[in-house]
Amino acid sequence: MTRYLIGRLGRTILVVLGLVTVTFFLSRSVSDPVQLMLPLSATPEDHARLRTELGLDEPLPAQFVTYLGDLAQGDMGVSIWQGTPTLPLVLERLPASLKLAAASVALAILVGLPIGVLGGMRPGSWMDKASTISSSLSLAVPDFWLGILLIYLFSVQLPWLPTSGYGGINFMVLPVIALSLRPGGRLARVAREAVKNEMSKPYVVAAEAKGLRATRLMMRHVIKNILVVVVTVVGYDFLFVFTGYAIGVETVFDWPGVGRLAVQATLNQDLTLISTIVIVTGVLIAVVNMLLDLLAATIDRRISL
């Protein structure tokens, strides 16, 4: 186990280093920050001066070393758009996004997992059909569209919840529902397949032959065996909720999270800020994945062999 932990930690560090390297070289190759920062009226001399000031006239490898050094001190550059250091800008938005992602994944587990498990227990039953249909639907509906629909229904038609913005728990309800839909659907599907697969294994028959009753069998044997799959899928979904889906939903609900920041940074061509967002979310994802892998390994020790 210790060996596995160390190995897994090492891999996480490798991933983060790779991410930093790719982000650096990619951002340097796609655009010229000097062009973005200076007004159109700037002279070539202005360009050259700023270039020297920013150290952009040095060779790329040297720049990379400087960049790594700054990074180690938490300096990830200054936002072109806001004119302030980027890291605090991103970190300030992080809690809102994390809250949204965590709540959505939690809701997805709470609803999707039981639906999938119930479906998988009796393949072909009406329970199973209901489970399959609902999970297919939830996967087919685009979340930002659902977000708009929810606002229309519950904020405009029925004035129960705020349309958008950030505040108490009532601000979270609609975005969380919109965001949890797809992960929930996928989780239900995966859980259904896993349970169905698990139920056909000989150890389930053997456990029944010991005299275990169905509920106990489910709780004590089957659920534990599908947990590894569930953990993996949840990790994957967390990643998606955080990076992909949230951009649409945060925009629709005007949620002050990293997703919306990314949209704003892109619209303002703020490459430094985008790079920072990419690295921060990348580190977060790498760490979350590592933790989930370790969790999976404690559930199933064969993983750490």
Binding site: Y203, A206, K210, H221, K224, N225, I299
Partner: peptide, 24 residues
């Protein structure tokens, strides 16, 4: 029936590795 299984009669299967829960 579950009170009879395991108490009045038990069964042993062909593949012992498959018949045991791998996680316990």
């Amino acid at each position: 029936m579950s009170r009879i299984r395991g108490r009045e009669m038990s069964i042993v299967f062909q593949d012992p590795l498959g018949a045991l829960n791998p996680l316990r």
